[in-house]
Amino acid sequence: MITALIRRLAEMVFVMVGISVMVFLIFFATPGSDPAARIAGRNATQEAVAQVRVDFGFDRPLPVQYVLMMKRLFVDRDLKSFVNRGQNVIPQVLEATPITLSLVFGAAVLWVIGGLAVGVIAAATQGSLIDRTLMVLALIGVSMPVFWFGEVMNLLSQARFHDTWLFSWVPALGYKPLSEDPWGWFKTLVIPWFSLAVLYIGIYGRVLRANLVEAYQEDFIRTARAKGLSPARVMLRHALRTSLIPFITMFGLDFGVLVGGSALLTEVVFGLNGIGRLTYIALQNLDLPMILATVIYASFFVVLANAVVDFIYIFVDPRMREA
């Protein structure tokens, strides 16, 4: 168990180093672009560009450039994005992180519960009106673009019906840190959570239902029924437990990717200055140091989420323990 853990951690580090190398090569070693000029910023003088070239070692071999860059990013933590008026990169990422984590984590709780409920209820009532209604709703949830749905939610809660009892509690757009104002944090995030989760509830509910329906064809379900167990027990203890693997796999991927910045649209719609937005702006300005930082940050969460998923597999399915 311990060795497995250490091995997994080593693999994570290996993957992240690989990603950082690739990102570095894409942005800094692409022929025809001068990274020094990019970092120095638009109206920089020749001297400033030359200075950057020396500082970052762009006149030296690629491996040296890479090591220097990583050293500045992680050890000295003084990497600045010149175009962004020379602010340090790391503090900006650290500032955006809790916002994105709050958004995605809350939405994840909602979509896991919602997805489980939709999937289980639809599978249990397979073929009935309830099943069909849930599946149509899930399809609608999957089909609605999050920016559109978010804007509609904003329109309802911030404008049209803000004065009614239904939405009068909704605070203005923006983020309130959890440590300063827990209740405010919760209130500002409820609607973003919901907007982000709707899509995933739809996807997870449909996938889970399909897996459960398949599980009901299995021999062990027939055995469980032949034992005289109640339908609820057959569903929850036998069918659901064995159908969770794809659900968990999807969760690991989606969670990692969202924390890594893919919640961009939701962040923009609800005025949350999270990682997605940070990455977006960095890409627009070709702010290379910032891009490097956010991509490595994102890869960290994707890799971490996958490692966590691997451990959940072992917990959920004993067959994976020996592998």
Binding site: E218, D219, F220, R222, T223, A224, R225, A226, K227, G228, L229, R237, H238, R241, T242, V316, D317, P318, R319
Partner: peptide, 19 residues
Amino acid sequence: RGKQIAFIPQDPLTALTPV
């Protein structure tokens, strides 16, 4: 079912819940 009439299935690998 299960108390007075019990069922023994064909393939014991697929007939037991794996988890």
